[in-house]
């Protein structure tokens, strides 16, 4: 059954879209990520124009993040102070990102730019996560080797001004690193249509030294607002949010997320992480190949003003 998408102006199979939403929802339920990094390339693949894919991807991430943050809220896993600081950074970043996106669109380099961002960030995160979880699995097999872990280490971050107490996270650090981190994620969100959870979560643990139990909730909290802001910015600047497309993806995602989170209880965290790492790497390698291999069609046609 075909469905005509009013903004994308393409007709797509309804069940294919539901399936895509379901697949992404399944992964997001299983791994606790928004899944934006998958939905945008998949939408591009089925023929949705890049602008619509990025903007609608951001809208879909809002829904999955809200669903996730409500679950985390019940476990008291959200640091609102830290979330708000990240958020302010995120808004600034998102604003800059939308401008970059518009600039790159005008230059005609937006696809390459988005692809390069994907290869670079997904590649980096994939390799890091793979390495880290592979070590964890290896370590757990070699019993007895106890890990020494300090509460937090003093680094250059502690000498920065504007220190704030983040009670939930048990941190007393400058607001500057979380602001900068939030801004980076905001830029990515606008350019790649992703929530940035895959960057934010490791950065919060390893850079800011936040405890793991508040990381997922806090990152989801900030992602809701950053992707929400991005959605509105794209809706106003380029009118590329397709509500019909978003709705179908969200419906599929809701069902997928439930199945995914049931599945996740059957696997160990390290195994989950290594699977996610492999998935992230696979997406990144696929996009890298598209950039490196000679494309079948060298030319592309962009309509300037939609009649």
């Amino acid at each position: 059954m075909q469905i005509y998408l009013p903004i994308a102006e393409v007709s797509v199979n309804l069940f294919l879209l539901l399936g895509l939403g379901g697949l992404v929802g399944f992964l997001s339920g299983m791994f606790g990520v928004g899944g934006g990094f998958l939905i945008t390339p998949l939408l591009l693949f089925i023929g949705v124009p890049p602008g619509v894919a990025v903007a609608t991807g951001a809208n879909q991430v809002v829904a999955s993040s809200i669903s996730g943050v409500l679950a985390q809220l019940r476990r008291k896993g959200v640091d609102f102070v830290m979330g708000s600081v990240l958020l302010i950074g995120g808004m600034i970043g998102s604003f800059i990102g939308v401008q970059i996106f518009a600039y790159m669109t005008a230059l005609g380099q937006v696809d390459v730019f988005v692809q390069l961002s994907y290869v670079f960030f997904l590649g980096f995160i994939g390799v890091t996560m793979f390495w880290e979880s592979a070590r964890a699995i290896w370590r757990s097999q070699r019993q007895g080797a106890q890990q020494i872990r300090r509460a937090h280490q003093h680094s250059w971050m502690h000498s920065l001004p504007f220190k704030v107490k983040f009670r939930k996270s048990g941190l007393f650090i400058s607001v500057l690193p979380p602001l900068a981190l939030g801004a980076c994620v905001g830029v990515l969100s606008a350019i790649m249509g992703v929530g940035g959870g895959f960057i934010l979560v490791p950065a919060m643990i390893y850079l800011l030294g936040m405890p793991t139990k508040v990381v997922v909730g806090t990152s989801l909290f900030q992602i809701i607002f950053v992707t929400g802001f991005t959605t509105i910015m794209h809706a106003v600047n380029s009118q590329t949010v397709d509500m019909m497309l978003a709705f179908v993806l969200i419906v599929g995602g809701v069902i997928g997320a439930q199945i995914g989170s049931r599945m996740s209880t059957r696997l160990k965290p390290e195994q989950l992480r290594i699977l996610l790492a492999m998935l992230v790497l696979a997406v990144s390698i696929k996009i890298a190949l598209d950039l490196l291999l000679m494309p079948a069609e060298l030319y592309s046609v962009t309509r300037l003003v939609l009649p």
């Binding site: 809002v62 669903s67 959605t231 509500m243 969200i250 995602g253």
Partner: peptide, 15 residues
């Protein structure tokens, strides 16, 4: 844009 967000919020909360 705001309506799109509302849709996402309701769907997320509902889920």
């Amino acid at each position: 844009g705001i309506l799109s967000l509302l849709l996402a919020a309701v769907a997320g909360w509902g889920a």
